[in-house]
Design a binder for these strands. Sequence first.
DNA 1: ACAAATTCCGATTGGTTTAGTAGGATATAA
DNA 2: TTATATCCTACTAAACCAATCGGAATTTGT
Lengths: 154, 154
Amino acid sequence: MKSVRFSTRGRYGVQIMVDLARHSEEGPISLKSVADRQKLSEHYLEQLVPELRKAGLVKSIRGAQGGYVLAKKPEDIYIGDVIRVLEGPIAPVECNNQTGKDCCEKTSFCVTREVWVKVRDSINDLVDSISLADLIKDADNGEGEKVNLFEDEA
Amino acid sequence: MKSVRFSTRGRYGVQIMVDLARHSEEGPISLKSVADRQKLSEHYLEQLVPELRKAGLVKSIRGAQGGYVLAKKPEDIYIGDVIRVLEGPIAPVECNNQTGKDCCEKTSFCVTREVWVKVRDSINDLVDSISLADLIKDADNGEGEKVNLFEDEA
DNA sequence: ACAAATTCCGATTGGTTTAGTAGGATATAA
DNA sequence: TTATATCCTACTAAACCAATCGGAATTTGT
């Protein structure tokens, strides 16, 4: 049981974009080559990339020798956009009552709301501060300081 | 489609704890009264609270006129603990390969990892900085500045 | 003209997770 | 001894996830 997870959509999305950024000099990149390099299902990626295209993050070239290219420079693409396109808005909880009125009176639910708002803002601020260029640069330099994703292995 | 969500477990858990904190002078608080005030299923809460007890966050008093009380002062209970007890560790992604070795070589997956690590740390730092006492105090003061949880309503 | 490569699109599926519900056993105050 | 509680183990309906399947449309190279 892990909480506050990104689904594969957002994770793969960022992988795809980084892969495209790294091969951006080579003309259109086929999903097949991305899938091979990243060890992902090409068919599943086919489901994701069109959404990135509709959002204006990549461009597609159809037909043989076609593929995808970034629609903007890597330094102008922030992973927050990639994630939100594929995963929807980052919203750690929903309001009970969509109107927002008549909710949050007296009950301690109202009190807890501010927590979720802060979490949401904190995540959004973070992912909106990291561009594809930042990620590529880190990879070339540090060679990935092997940080540990798991709490229990600290 | 909303991403990076807390489940009801963590959300209700924080609600319960805040409710207990607010009524901490009244002796043991029955889950029934919490459920009534918070408009939640008592039976569902019954599933959550024992986990908080095992984690040492609340104490239970069985039998008639029994209920739950906080095990510590509200200023010593951080919502990060409540959330992690009920939702498990906050881990926005899993590693492909639990050992950590032989993963993250050359592929851009490695590069993206640092993103998830930062997200994880940022959330943990935040929830570990907010105590129950903080939440109650805010409720009494600001009366809840009506922040908006939804991105699209900004 | 044709074959291969490729994006594009919709439907289906198996598995997991979520958010409970059901039903009772145990403990205690009055 | 009854009403009020916690405690515990199953079960379940619905939603969601991560694909897979099958094929249509588009373009390049021969």
